[in-house]
Design a protein around this nucleic acid. Structure first.
Lengths: 347, 347
DNA sequence: TTGAAAGCGCTAACAT
DNA sequence: ATGTTAGCGCTTTCAA
């Protein structure tokens, strides 16, 4: 296995100094065309690849950022991660994904462990750290928070409008005449997390419509897997609680709920209309297709990356913490408005 | 923003040399307890974190490996990535995920681009590179191939038993009396890829059972999204082609197929039994739950990581290329054997 | 058992 | 426009 070629090897082959090779490699403008040509030839001849570790040590920047998320197997986070990588790739930045589960210790470890020293910055989209943990954020490394947790930390935040988006989803169901709407995915006592905020939006919509809120219509779940959505809805059905709409706080929950509804012989949307949250890919392939709220995933990813790279480039300047609220949009599909094209065909 | 503390800072604070601090940090055994104690105190007092970039430059190893996959939004690859990260974490190795789509150029770029110089090795699980591309593999960087492509490259391979697993899936359908079984996810002309191999296994099972193969029962698809599975099955139904079983070459295809079957009013498994491939999480939450073949994802991940770290640790020695075939297992669920517990309840 | 110092490959002053 | 060289923070050989 040949030791990889270095700047010096190229310099020797081209008969110039390392300085010149470095200049050429880094697009330094003031290099004579002849020299540049000679260097480039040596580069290709030797198959030179810059050692990013050495460059990283020298520059104090490695071109790698960490994305901390709970779980990659969750469709939303897989899509978020993809959006983040796409955005980062535009600036030749790599993304080290760190799934930490829902484990507070692992979240902290990532924020403070030695790997933090290897990356230029951290995008933090974990869940377990809460409002009171703001002080745990290490402000010496550029950090951008995604989501609502820890909202007092003195760092940039890029968040979705959970309350407003959830309210819009609920209003969508109200607009098609649903009166008894289940809030699926609530977590007991949670106020500031995604679940709590989305529940708030649900309540806001009901209140604005002058509808009472029946506590029986809260579908409490432990986590947001399909199984949780299915179990919660199955439970409501078993308890003979009547409802004609479901606002699920994630698409996965909604898909699980659909499964339970169909299991019980209920028609979607005729008997129960349902809308999810996140507008993940799978909403397009369920049967019926699932209405959802796009809370602005791509916008969140690109804004967060922009914020972070911005901080990294201007490490010395101390810009005040910024906050970005991304736009959201209700995406109606068959699970609320029925199969429009099928209706056409049958006429 | 304080410049991060270095070995020298700790050394000065503890009144020892950097050599000693390094020894302590790296668990070098021959350090006097008193010295160790003093150093450790300084380390915590100053909050010292080793600079992994510098260590990487010095050691020629960064503790980062790349995982090249087509797409993280594909449930199988998200689960594979998670399994790989879990396995790598056991050795304190980080994983840089590189989704390259199905783009041949991007796959090559990852194998030869400068980022290759930042990582210790590459786990390559992409799709577009084929049998004839073996020579493109850069053997100077430790590489392990996952999957069937490029099987002549002189590097380690960790593969699933596509043919055998697919045959077992088909035999599962045969064992419950299905005679006209659709192979869903075939790609025209493909022989060596996952699709081609799984199709081979399907044919093998039919042949061994003495059943004829009807070419009309090939569900050709462009890609393996849910929509492809749904469209292909919908097409078969529209063309009035009779079938009572489906072997889908991925769970996602299968879930799409289930959607199309249900749309058409067919019962699963009474009218059509269906089995998927990969045993992804979602198989447990569909309605009905989806039978599948676990082709050994975790075993593949851990073996591949072991192989790769092995190569990295022994870079000089030239072990011959190894090959590992992981075990597989048919997981019967409701989509083939029906709802067993429901049958109990109804009695 | 510990110190001094070289050097991993690179960039960027400081030269000319 | 280009050559020389210091030094990023670390590990480790050589010395003591």
């Amino acid at each position: 296995m040949p030791a990889s070629t270095t700047l010096h090897d190229v310099a020797r082959a081209a008969g110039v100094s390392v300085r010149t090779v470095s200049n050429v490699v880094n697009q330094y403008p003031f290099v004579s065309p002849a020299t540049r040509e000679r260097v480039l030839q040596a580069v290709t001849a030797l198959g030179y690849q810059p050692n990013l570790t050495a460059r990283g040590l020298r520059l104090g920047r490695t071109g790698v950022i960490t994305l901390v998320i709970p779980d990659l197997r969750n469709a939303y986070f897989a899509e978020l991660a993809t959006s983040v990588m796409d955005a980062a790739a535009l600036d030749n930045v790599f993304v080290l994904i760190e799934p930490v589960g829902f484990d507070r210790d692992r979240e902290l470890q990532v924020l403070r462990g030695p790997q933090a020293k290897m990356v230029d910055g951290i995008l933090f989209s974990a869940l377990a750290l809460g409002e009171d943990d703001a002080h745990l954020i290490d402000t010496s490394i550029p950090t951008v928070l995604l989501g609502e947790q820890i909202f007092n930390a003195p760092v940039d935040h890029v968040t979705m409008q959970n309350v407003e988006a959830s309210r819009a989803a609920t209003e969508h169901l109200l607009s098609i005449g649903r009166k008894r709407i289940v809030a699926l995915g609530a977590r007991r006592g949670e106020v500031v997390g995604s679940s709590g905020l989305r529940f708030r939006g649900y309540l806001d919509a009901l209140e604005a419509a002058g509808l009472p809120h029946d506590p029986e219509l809260i579908g409490t779940t432990q986590s947001w897997h399909r199984a949780d959505g299915a179990a919660s809805i199955a439970d409501l059905i078993a308890r003979n609680i009547a409802f004609d709409g479901v606002v699920a706080f994630s698409d996965t929950l909604a898909l699980g709920a659909m499964s339970a509804l169909q299991h019980a012989g209920l028609r979607i949307p005729e008997d129960v209309a349902i809308i999810g949250f996140d507008d993940t890919d799978e909403t397009r392939y369920s049967h019926p297709t699932l209405s959802s709220v796009d809370a602005g995933r791509d916008e969140i990813a690109s804004t967060a990356v922009t914020f972070l790279l911005d901080r990294i480039k201007n490490r010395d300047e101390s810009l005040p913490p910024r906050r970005h609220l991304s736009k959201f949009q209700v995406i109606p599909r068959e699970s609320t408005i029925g199969n429009v094209s099928a209706a056409h065909h049958s006429s």
